[in-house]
Design a binder for these strands. Sequence first.
DNA 1: CCCTGTGAAATAATTCACAGCA
DNA 2: TGCTGTGAATTATTTCACAGGG
Lengths: 225, 225
Amino acid sequence: MSADPISRRDVSDATVARLPEYLRTLSRLAERGVSCVSSAELASAVGVRSAQLRKDLSRLGSYGVRGVGYEVETLAVEISRVLGLTRDWPVAVVGMGNLGHALASYPGFATKGFRVVALFDDDPGLVGEQVGGVVIRPFAELPARVRSDRIAIGVIATPAAAAQAVGEALAAAGVRSILNFAPASIAVPAAVDVRRVDLSTELQILAFHAQRRTYAAPLSGAVAR
Amino acid sequence: MSADPISRRDVSDATVARLPEYLRTLSRLAERGVSCVSSAELASAVGVRSAQLRKDLSRLGSYGVRGVGYEVETLAVEISRVLGLTRDWPVAVVGMGNLGHALASYPGFATKGFRVVALFDDDPGLVGEQVGGVVIRPFAELPARVRSDRIAIGVIATPAAAAQAVGEALAAAGVRSILNFAPASIAVPAAVDVRRVDLSTELQILAFHAQRRTYAAPLSGAVAR
DNA sequence: CCCTGTGAAATAATTCACAGCA
DNA sequence: TGCTGTGAATTATTTCACAGGG
């Protein structure tokens, strides 16, 4: 009666990383009133090969109809289920400088069951301020809030110097998933899943490719006309 | 006389993605006064296997000393060179809402040769405002600025609805590398390299793993003491 | 037919294990 | 001896190509 149609165990990381993109594209199609897509159509909208799309989807189960395609609505629900988006994910943001403010009011956060329910900062000039209907609290209140609001995901938006301490505090408070925006890596117990999102890293990868491209085809002044 | 010690052609994407992390760790070691590391030490500081580190570094050339290790300074310079960080990368940010403001003043941007030299937004309430010493300009001035400032990297921080148009304008203006923070994918000519950084995507991947972990080891109330 | 789902083949990335040099 | 650099083995991922159901 545990009613779990597929064990999530055999969905590879590479596949999981593509699921949010599939889901976003399906939502766009649904908005346009499209109710059915073939793997070729969906794949080209996403920018992957149709064989890869089918292989990915086959990991979730058989939700397509041979000779026809996939029902947009059904598939979206199924991907949401596998990603864990059918439940609620209370999120805490630590560090309410520019970046923290932007994150706390970013629309991408509000979607798909993620709710920013707690904001923390130790700057007395920030404590008490409301951002998106949530009041900024002193960092010391973190453990109590994690328990009372069942916070499962913590976001670190502090300067680099504070990141390690915040990560440890989040882990100690019971948070098992951390999104780290601080320009520093953090070391946490293996039970905690950390994903780092870093501007600087992305820019450096971009610079590498930009440089490669320059070698391949030196950009001349041929702008527009 | 082109003096290129290795062709960057055979450095795989997987390796390139790890180089910024190696570089950051090397910088930290240098600050601490460490002048030499073995692959085992560096690998454990970064969180990869030593064999992978050596394989990655071997792609850049032979900069280690057998029986000893790698000279921190030399290796950092070499990775910087390969990533293209020894030159200057003028950056334009388009969309100066909360996120754009945060990006324009984010310290991670200022490092490693990336300079935010132009900010664009069409909101009359924002045009003219200074952020980090740079004045926000109307979007129509983009092509002229790209040329005059040799802007090679564009950052999209607009709402989803504007992203596609901004991407096309950047591409048309001659920008060949785009970092897209808008909650929407954009379609651009193949000559343009786009990297998308998306909160929502990261959160969804995090949710998947958080859910998996919950199944594996249900979190009990064992908090601190 | 057409398009899904999937074994089999090809390719890519990681890890092992050790030769070879300081 | 100790640690790098690298072929060889292993594992992961992608792509091919087609059997099979609607």
